[in-house]
Design a protein around this nucleic acid. Structure first.
Length: 599
DNA sequence: GTAGGGTTAG
């Protein structure tokens, strides 16, 4: 019988710790991690080049970037693994500049990057406006003469492609000069072209490819779907040598977005294999277009199949509910969250807040918000915007103060909500103060959306001349929404000259909207200017616009009812009209008289 | 490298 060889004590401790650390970052339990960290420190292994990177990764996954940096700083001679883990930690916490600084620090200390360094680093650099960072990394790569394995230049292509038009053209140059290309290089390049809207070039490369895998086909398919060219997508889909679940889902998604739910359903039913994403697509597709019954029945079917939903499913469906006001389905989703004990992430709670707010339940939105143990900027922005929309500007503005007290810095979304709150409360001057504070205090350059809010604020407050001045002097071209906002204000205050001016612009910017023509014509008619009335009518006829009737939809216990003007198609039509007649005097009394002026 | 996903003005 042989005696088992005993590993020395330090080895078992170290091995145990290593195992514990690698296990820990899966459950993201911070207090456990801190305990392990203390043990490691006690064992004097905190600067061990193999343990320290694991600690850094674990802290990073627990969103404890500061602690990760502390671990790094305690190592006297950092190696490439250690630098890589810190770069990745910065990347995971969206600190792209810090990731790059770490990279430079690494070069300064004479540590050479390896095959893992660049992909981490480039992932950090590939956000919007990060083109310069990617270029700097590229320059360093050339300087060092190190491109590593094929996946290093491949991730460079990918990162360039995520940096807008200029990035895509840099990626192209790089792609052209690459000596070895694998299928991923081709796919990344084609995907970049698709994202940059250069579909023709993407197709050309796709046709030139020496060999294609299912990913190549799916990328191309997605390109047609994104441009809503479902005919081209379908042609390609038919030509595919083999279709996987992604190919089918892409098609289903395309048809739902194009509004062709029958076709989407047909393909969905034909799918040989369905997964969670496919179910999510079809349910959100129905929900987003207001088909409660179909959406709920599919949702029930999905649940009865025993499919466990994830964050993506919940968020997608709730967003679709918010879009079309499907409170019934929203509540249904909420009840299965409660029933299954699903742990709601911050993003799921944010989607819930938005759903409740957009479906008319501001109070419930507030309850969700107040019950959250962890909130991010989006949570604050969503609740502020939701309350503002419902006219509870006072609470919205109070929450804005609390948000700042909690250490959040407002962003462009926050100000949309704030300005909206001021508009609905009639706080014109206060709103102006907030508008000016954007750039002065927070370096946020107002975008067209903010000018839209400002114009609404001034316009509804009766200061139409100032509103018009803003439109004429703002740094961007006014679009249809801007003119439409101003028109909305005109309808409240009747300044005929301004309304004329606005509508003249509006019919140019958005000639498809027939209502604008009608309103312009009505204004001329009111002023007795029959010549211009005829002009407008003639223009309408020439362009071929017809006034479509507006429709209201109502979700009653899961059934959606649609109503149009003079509509008597509803089975209960007679009763509904009787009720309207009954309600009319009361409506008038409460100040809800119908307004027919200006259309 | 491919399909679903939280906050933008009327």
């Amino acid at each position: 019988m042989t005696t088992p060889i005993r590993a020395p004590t330090w080895f078992s401790t170290r091995r145990q710790l290593e195992l514990q650390v690698s296990e820990l970052h899966k459950c993201s339990n911070l207090s456990h991690l801190k305990q392990i960290h203390a043990q490691i420190f006690k064992a004097n292994l905190h600067n061990d080049p193999f343990i320290a990177p694991k600690l850094i990764s674990a802290f990073s996954l627990c969103h404890q970037l500061g602690l990760a940096i502390n671990v790094f700083n305690q190592v006297r001679y950092p190696n490439v693994h250690l630098y890589n883990s810190l770069i990745r930690a910065h990347t995971q916490n969206s600190q792209s500049c810090q990731a790059f600084m770490t990279f430079l620090d690494m070069l300064n200390n004479g540590v050479l990057p390896d095959n893992f360094t660049y992909p981490f680093l480039l992932k950090a650099c590939s956000g919007p406006c990060s083109l310069q960072l990617v270029q700097m990394v590229h320059t360093q790569m050339i300087k060092l003469g190190f491109f590593g394995d094929i996946f290093v230049p491949n991730s460079l292509i990918d990162s360039y492609c995520k940096c807008g038009v200029i990035g895509v053209s840099s990626a192209r140059k790089l792609f052209m000069f690459m000596e070895d290309r694998d299928i991923v290089s081709w796919n990344s390049m084609i995907s970049g072209l698709v994202k940059g809207g250069e579909l023709k070039d993407a197709r050309q490369l796709f046709d030139e490819m020496p060999e294609r895998d299912s990913v190549s086909w799916n990328i191309m398919l997605d390109g047609y779907v994104k441009t809503r060219d479902m005919d081209a997508a379908f042609k390609l889909f038919e030509r595919m040598p083999e279709r996987n679940v992604v190919s089918w889902s892409t098609m289903v998604s395309g048809y739902t977005k194009a509004g062709d739910l029958d076709m989407a359903r047909l393909l969905f039913d034909k799918m040989p294999v369905k997964n969670l994403v496919s179910w999510t697509i079809i349910i959100s597709g129905y929900a987003g277009k207001g088909f409660t019954k179909e959406a709920i029945s599919l949702y029930n079917e999905m649940e009865s199949l025993g499919l466990k939903f994830d964050d993506g499913t919940i968020i997608s469906i709730l967003a679709a509910c918010a879009e079309s006001g499907l409170l019934t389905l929203g509540k249904r989703v909420r009840s299965s969250i409660v029933a299954t004990g699903f742990r709601c992430s911050v993003a799921v709670n944010n989607a819930l807040i938005d759903m409740y707010a957009k479906c008319g339940c501001a109070e419930k939105a507030l309850v969700v918000f107040q019950g959250m143990s962890e909130r991010d900027l989006v949570s604050w922005n969503t609740i502020i915007q939701g309350l503002a929309m419902h006219g509870d500007g006072v609470t919205a503005l109070k929450l804005y103060s609390r948000m700042k007290q909690s250490g959040f810095r407002p962003d462009k979304f926050t100000f949309i909500g704030i300005l909206c709150a001021c508009t609905h409360m009639g706080y014109v001057d206060k709103g102006l103060d907030y508008f000016y504070s954007m750039e002065r205090d927070y370096e946020i350059v107002p975008q067209i959306e903010h000018y839209g809010c400002l114009i609404d604020l001034l316009g509804r407050g009766g200061r139409l001349k100032e509103a018009l001045e803003v439109v004429q002097n703002m740094p961007m071209e006014p679009n249809a929404v801007i003119w439409g906002t101003l028109l909305g204000a005109c309808r409240l205050h009747y300044p005929v000259e301004i309304a004329q001016e606005v509508l003249k612009h509006l019919v140019k910017v958005d000639p498809t909207e027939a209502g604008n023509f009608s309103m312009l014509s009505n204004i001329y008619a009111a002023a007795g200017d029959w010549g211009n009335v005829a002009n407008v009518r003639r223009t309408m006829k020439n362009i071929g616009v017809q006034k479509p009737s507006g429709a209201s939809t109502l979700d009653l216990d899961g059934e959606v009812h649609e109503f149009t003007v003079f509509d008597n198609s509803h089975p209960n039509s007679e009763g509904i009209y009787q009720m309207i007649h009954l309600l009319r005097p009361q409506l008038k009394e409460s100040g809800c008289a119908p307004r027919t002026k200006y259309g």
